[in-house]
């Protein structure tokens, strides 16, 4: 860990101002990923701006669009177990609870969750080249041990995945990210927040210099009747997803009125293909239609050796998740993942 100074921010403006004038500064809230990476010498900020005193950003309340506004500094645990989230967005609740551990969820914040960096072994290990950590040094995973790596949207420079569970549900729910920056406030559609690696894998998202996430807006549609988060991992809990699927369905009888499917663990961002979701609109909720959608979703998938299996696994997971959301043969309390974890 390198040498740094610490300050506790008392106002968003001042925090943003300081961050935008110091390229070596970093915001810290929960610290669960930043401090981990600082101990590995992957992140090396010389100034930490603590956000935890900005209690205005820790609230969860209704937004003008009829949805819910999740403060960026609300913890993952407080969000998952918030009565409104449990009632109106059980998909989000279930998804958050499938991630990390109770301790980490008590620390990690909603804003910080979006800022998580990849778990790529090579990114974490300074002894190996990594374009994300050190642009131009090469991608060791491309021809290396890439079991946990991307099968969609990767580039020759980087095949890392983005590890968050929560974001997969946020993608399916079409949340909006509210940010505050030197130029004032703006909103970013969730699909536009994270980016694909392309030529610049060192850049994870579309935040501008100095910008701070202040809240996440959930639209009114919460898919609270038909939803599921299916997470496949190498142990039953406290492990990152090998592949995960968040599904929200609006059904009228057996006919799909609206479908959302987001994949985790397969790309540099939560993976959605709106065109595929559109083909499901008006279709009946049958296994054949689900299989067709899964095939279409994974059409451009590419394996790199150890992760080839994820293509078939993701297809099967999509079909299973769609079935599960249709039938809702899963308990509906917030701990539903306990019983539906395959």
């Amino acid at each position: 860990m390198n040498s740094f100074t610490y300050t506790s921010a008392t106002a968003v403006d001042a925090a943003v101002r300081e961050k935008s004038t110091n390229s070596k500064a970093a915001f810290v809230a929960g610290g669960t990923n930043l401090l981990d990476l600082m101990k590995e010498n992957v992140e090396r900020p010389t100034r930490l701006i603590g956000l935890n005193k900005l209690s205005d950003l820790a609230t969860i309340e209704n937004n003008p669009e009829g949805g819910l506004r999740l403060g960026a500094l609300a913890t993952n645990a407080d969000t998952a177990w918030h009565p409104e989230v449990e009632k109106r967005y059980p998909l989000l609740s279930q998804t958050i609870l499938a991630g990390a551990s109770p301790q980490l969820r008590n620390m990690a914040t909603n804003g910080g969750n979006l800022m998580q960096r990849t778990r790529c072994y090579y990114f974490y290990d300074l002894a190996t080249p990594c374009n994300k950590r050190e642009p131009g040094s090469g991608c060791s995973a491309l021809n290396g041990f890439n079991r946990i790596h991307a099968i969609l949207g990767a580039s020759e420079h980087c095949i890392a995945t983005y590890p968050s569970d929560m974001a997969v549900a946020l993608a399916a729910l079409e949340a909006t990210v509210r940010v505050s920056g030197p130029q004032g406030e703006r909103t970013i559609a969730f699909a536009d927040f994270h980016r694909l690696p392309g030529d610049h894998p060192e850049i994870d998202n579309t935040l501008e210099t100095g910008e701070l996430i202040t809240a996440l807006d959930l639209p009114a549609q919460g898919f609270e009747k038909n939803f599921t988060y299916l997470k496949l991992r190498d142990r039953t809990s406290y492990a990152f997803a090998v592949v995960s699927v968040a599904v929200g369905l609006e059904l009228e009888g057996n006919v799909i009125k609206e479908a959302r499917i987001a994949l985790g663990g397969v790309a540099h961002k939560p993976w959605r293909v709106v065109a595929v979701e559109e083909t499901l609109r008006g279709a009946t909720a049958t296994e054949d239609n689900f299989r067709e959608a899964a095939t279409a979703l994974l059409r451009d998938a590419q394996g790199y050796g150890s992760n080839n299996f994820k293509i078939e696994l993701a297809k099967r997971a999509v079909v299973r998740a769609l079935k599960q959301a249709t039938e809702m043969n899963q308990p509906l309390d917030a701990n539903a993942f306990l019983n539906s974890n395959p």
Partner: peptide
């Protein structure tokens, strides 16, 4: 798991 390009255990 070792990456034999580096001779290094990667999931350490």
């Amino acid at each position: 798991v070792m990456d034999h390009t580096f001779g290094r255990y990667m999931n350490h």
